[in-house]
Nucleic acid binder design. Structure first.
Length: 171
DNA sequence: GTAACGATCCTC
DNA sequence: AGGATCGTTACA
């Protein structure tokens, strides 16, 4: 058995609050365009959980942009933030259970916007599946780092309850 | 059709 | 501490 294996479909079907911290230490592998294939250890994530979570995009209703979050776990939700930065999110949970993990940082790259720029991830990755895609997937390194959790970043608008949820996880 | 809003980053 | 910058959304 190989030390690193591609993460399968079952992994992504669990709750976002289990998966967001479990992603820490895993490797994100990307082959985009003419770039060299890269493997990056995930170091920082945030969980966004359901229509009741006022910080989650689906709290404003089901739209064309957020549609993929209602699909099965393992799909990618990509959107543009502040008109400049593409954000990389991994859909989790079961269909019709809208949740996603924002990947905020990998080893050597902090910041969700800088991350996607460095890895060559843009809107063309919207709806791509980490389970089956030939150009982006996840590998289990077997490394389970200790981590801490804090409130999520940039979600002051979500109200006192939701903005203070300790759903940001970092090594 | 128009306007407001950001799950950020860079440069003062 | 503040401006950049543009797709998505809501509303007329």
């Amino acid at each position: 058995m190989k030390l690193t294996e591609r993460v399968n479909k079952e992994f992504f079907g669990r709750d976002v609050l289990e998966i967001a911290p479990a992603l820490l230490g895993m490797k994100l592998v990307v082959r985009s365009g003419s770039r060299q294939p890269g493997s990056y250890m995930i170091t920082e994530t945030e969980a966004y959980r359901g229509e009741e979570d006022l910080a989650c995009h689906v709290s404003k209703g089901r739209t064309g942009r957020t549609e993929v979050m209602y699909g099965e776990g393992g799909l990618l939700y990509i959107y543009l933030c502040y008109g400049i930065h593409w954000m990389l999110n991994i859909v989790t949970g079961r269909p019709e259970e809208p949740q996603a993990v924002l990947v905020r940082g990998v080893e050597g790259i902090t910041g969700p916007g800088r991350l996607t720029k460095a890895l060559g991830i843009d809107k063309s990755f919207y709806g791509e599946s980490l389970v089956t895609s030939p150009r982006i997937w996840l590998e289990n390194s077997g490394f389970k780092p200790s981590y801490k959790s804090t409130a999520r970043i940039g979600v002051d608008y979500a109200g006192p309850v939701w903005k203070s949820k300790p759903w940001r996880f970092l090594i």
